[in-house]
Computed example of a mutant assay.
Amino acid sequence: MTTPRDLVFVALDAAAGRPPAQGDLSLALAGAELIDLLRAQAVRLDEDLVVPGYRPMIADPLLDQAASSLVRQEPYESVDDWLWRRGRGLAAAYLTALEADGQLVRHRRHRMPFAAGERVPADTPARRDAADRWASHEPVLTVLGVAAGIDDTRGAEEPSVADDAVATVLAAVHDAVRELEAVRQRRAIEDAAFDNIWRGVG
């Protein structure tokens, strides 16, 4: 399995507590894809620019799609630009792909027998491998999970990552998630102010 798919499994298993926001998870998934592409030598970083390498054969369709979408002409894309472009709607794309592969099942509630229900991980080797990776505090998955808001308790003991390029991507994911949260807060303030204006008019 890939790092993005492992991250989705971890997020879904944690969803019974406090599920991560789709936007945060999508940004983290885009970072996970870039890290897997770095490891496959499909890309390298020139400071913060994503420079395509050779085009490997990639079995996972979404990760292959990510490799195909790389900007291959100068000026290359920055890591930050990659996260925002590639991350758009990425969590939903992974949920759909995992369900199509039989890795997710629809959980029906007893009182709603005909409702489609929420998607939960099936008991598969892929899910168990992801859970083992998470339980072992594997550094990359842990940092991505913290950034996505899957487990805030791990933040204080977030592990360091030796690979400079991977560390650059992880730092960019954290920055992007913080930026997204700032946008949410601004919108909430603007919406509240707008509501107050209409209350005054009424």
Rank of each mutant, 00 (worst) to 15 (best):
M1T: 14
T2H: 02
T2W: 03
L7D: 01
V10D: 04
A14R: 14
G17T: 13
P20C: 12
P20D: 06
A21V: 07
G23A: 04
D24H: 11
L25A: 01
A30P: 00
E47F: 12
D48C: 03
L49T: 08
L49G: 01
V51D: 01
Y54P: 00
Y54V: 10
P56N: 11
M57G: 04
A59K: 11
L62G: 00
L62W: 00
D64G: 10
D64Y: 04
Q65M: 14
S69V: 12
D80F: 14
L83A: 10
W84E: 12
R85S: 13
G87R: 06
G89D: 14
L90T: 04
A92V: 12
Y94W: 15
Y94A: 06
L95G: 04
T96G: 08
T96I: 07
A97R: 12
L98A: 15
E99N: 05
Q103M: 13
L104Y: 13
V105P: 00
V105L: 15
M112L: 08
M112W: 13
F114S: 06
F114Y: 05
R119Y: 05
V120G: 00
A122C: 14
D123H: 11
D123I: 12
R127C: 00
D132C: 02
R133Y: 04
A135N: 13
H137N: 13
P139I: 10
P139E: 04
V140Q: 08
L141R: 08
V143L: 06
G145N: 04
V146M: 04
G149I: 07
D151Q: 06
D152V: 13
R154H: 03
E158W: 11
A162G: 00
D164W: 05
D164S: 07
V169N: 01
L170A: 04
A171H: 13
A172I: 07
H174S: 04
Q185K: 10
I189T: 09
I189L: 09
D191Q: 15
W198V: 09
G200D: 06
